[in-house]
Design a protein around this nucleic acid. Structure first.
Length: 498
RNA sequence: GCUCCGAUAGCUCAAUGGUAGAGCAGCUGACUCUUAAUCAGUAGGUUGUAGGUUCGAGUCCUACUCGGAGCACCA
């Protein structure tokens, strides 16, 4: 990019950079000997005292009020921000010259002694200023003012498109955006701690897979050049984790990305984080207990995150409510759903506004009806249990009623939080389920999977009875933080290229 | 994929079909405890792209691009 293509602001910044270099200042430093985070530095000056220790802080210059031979600025780091006071008489001439070239956004090191200003604000009185990185592009800083204890922004960076595309700028300018991501890290750490303490082993399984399965979704397809074969990005971890159960790791979990080639909206990103865990010798009732404890642990971790609005984190009362799939759908319909003919189901689905209802298979119809009549009405965490076998190709038949499976989903806030079952470990039954899926696929259902012969071979070697759970981490965090858009819990959400 | 809304200076926004503007950021200057600092001056634009209507288009029409909200899809 040459200067003719740059806007005036960018030209000015480069001119400033050139002046610094010409005067012998290195505008991009290698390191800085920081002694305190801004929050720790502030804590060093007790109430009532006006001067304190020497500190060295570093961070981004987020405000600057120059009064000629003095100036006030705020330096922001991960812990918050602290005011710095610059006075010409207190600084070497060379550094005052550097100060005069400072711009909002520059990364600086400020060394000096703590003091309290006339207005009571803890401030570093700068005796040594170090430029650590020059900003060549202005950040869209907001002006802020504290009014009645609440911070007001007077302008800023509000275009959602630009904020997601330039997340780095969004984060730099809006420190509160970081809170959900601190909460996210604490939540996954708490989940790992919970599972680790339960004796689960964290493992990693292939993202690139020759066959995809474990869920109903359209995959991303790629190609391996050396092998000259298509590969799919996984849509679920399930089938590989259960291979590990066969191998004798009897409690395993994975937290990783799944990829589904679907639309993007408030609750869907094409790559998202999935937790799956599998436990030998456990059935779905055991897994319900695990899920309850895990959600409570996740919630506590989110609550403990500084900056989180604890009022908005849902309270959990265990055990969660449990309702059965068939009776709750029948109640919603006013008829016994299993006794209804296909035509009656189609009519009911049409009444619910399901499009192309007459094109849908019977299980798909029931699923649609369940979603609109039951799922959306669930607010408090509720386990829906015992799904029809047609909807659950990887779940064991329910003891005493083979038309159903030992499966549960956890719903809260109208959304699915977890999906789990007593895992099907009968290879003959599993082959029949795969073949039914393969027929659906051949009939044009592009979300149905095929027959995974290698997985069947693994089952033939014998898989212990196993309970398994999948939990969408992004959506769990959305629920726990009251976030309305998945983009606000994913640092770099998928966007069309600029 | 569908419907509606939007795109104007680095950022946030104005502008009856009639000379494209403000605040912040920037630049120049004044100011040695300010905090949306203040004051004076100054610069900054192919109004998302391509067509069309019109004497004249930021404004009206068409298509496209990108985004937002909603719907559909999505266990």
């Amino acid at each position: 990019m040459n200067n003719e293509e740059l806007s005036q602001v960018l030209v000015d910044r480069r001119a400033s950079l050139d002046r610094l270099i010409a005067s012998g200042v290195a505008p991009f430093a290698y390191s800085y000997d920081r002694t305190h985070l801004t929050s720790d530095a502030r804590a060093l000056l007790p109430d009532g005292e006006d001067t304190g220790k020497a500190v060295r802080i570093a961070g981004r210059l987020v405000s600057l009020r120059s009064k000629g031979k003095t100036a006030f600025a705020h330096v922001s780091d991960a812990s918050g921000k602290l005011q710095a006071y610059f006075r010409k008489d207190d600084m070497p001439a060379v550094e005052w010259a550097v100060f005069e070239e400072l711009h909002l956004g520059d990364i600086v090191g400020v060394a000096g002694t703590l003091m309290r200003t006339r207005t009571g604000e803890v401030t570093v009185q700068c005796t040594e200023l170090t430029l650590l990185a020059k900003t060549l592009r202005p950040l869209p800083f907001a002006k802020e003012q504290v009014v009645d204890g609440e911070m007001k922004r007077f302008s800023g960076f509000s275009d959602p498109e630009q904020r997601y595309r330039q997340r780095y700028a969004d984060l730099a300018v809006h420190p509160e955006v970081r809170v959900n991501f601190y909460a996210r890290a604490r939540m996954t750490a708490a989940i790992r701690r919970f599972l680790d303490e339960m004796g689960y082993l964290e493992v990693e399984t292939p993202v690139l897979q020759p066959l995809y399965g474990g869920a109903a979704a359209r995959p991303f397809t790629t190609h391996h050049n050396a092998l000259d074969m298509p590969l799919y990005l996984r849509i679920a971890d399930e089938l590989y984790l259960k291979r590990l159960i066969v191998g004798g790791f009897d409690r395993v979990y994975e937290i990783g990305h799944d990829f589904r080639n679907e639309g993007i909206d408030r609750t869907h990103n094409p790559e998202f984080t999935m937790l799956e865990f599998y436990e030998s010798y456990a059935d779905y009732t055991v897994m319900m207990d695990r899920v309850e404890q895990l959600i409570v642990a996740a919630s506590s971790a989110v609550r403990a995150t500084p900056g989180i609005d604890v009022e908005n984190v849902p309270e959990f009362v265990t055990p969660f409510r449990r309702i059965e799939w068939v009776p709750s759908l029948s109640a919603g319909l006013g008829h016994d759903v299993l006794a209804m003919s296909d035509a009656e189901l189609v009519r009911a689905a049409q009444t619910q506004g399901v499009e192309k209802a007459n094109m849908l298979s019977r299980p798909k119809l029931m699923d649609e009806l369940f979603q609109s009549l039951v799922e959306r009405t669930i607010t408090t965490p509720t386990f829906v249990i015992d799904y029809p076998v047609e909807l659950s190709p990887l779940a064991k038949p329910k003891r005493g009623n083979p038309a159903l499976t030992e499966r549960f989903e956890l719903f809260a806030d109208g959304r699915e939080m977890a999906n789990a079952f007593s895992e099907l470990n009968d290879p003959i039954d599993q082959r029949q389920r795969f073949e039914a899926q393969a027929r659906l696929k051949a009939a044009g259902d592009d979300e149905a999977s095929g027959v995974d012969e290698d997985y069947l071979r693994a089952l033939e070697y014998g898989m212990p009875p196993t309970g398994g759970v999948g939990i969408g981490i992004d959506r769990l965090l959305m629920y726990l933080t009251g976030t309305q858009h998945i983009r606000d819990v994913i640092l770099f959400p998928a966007m069309r290229p600029e």
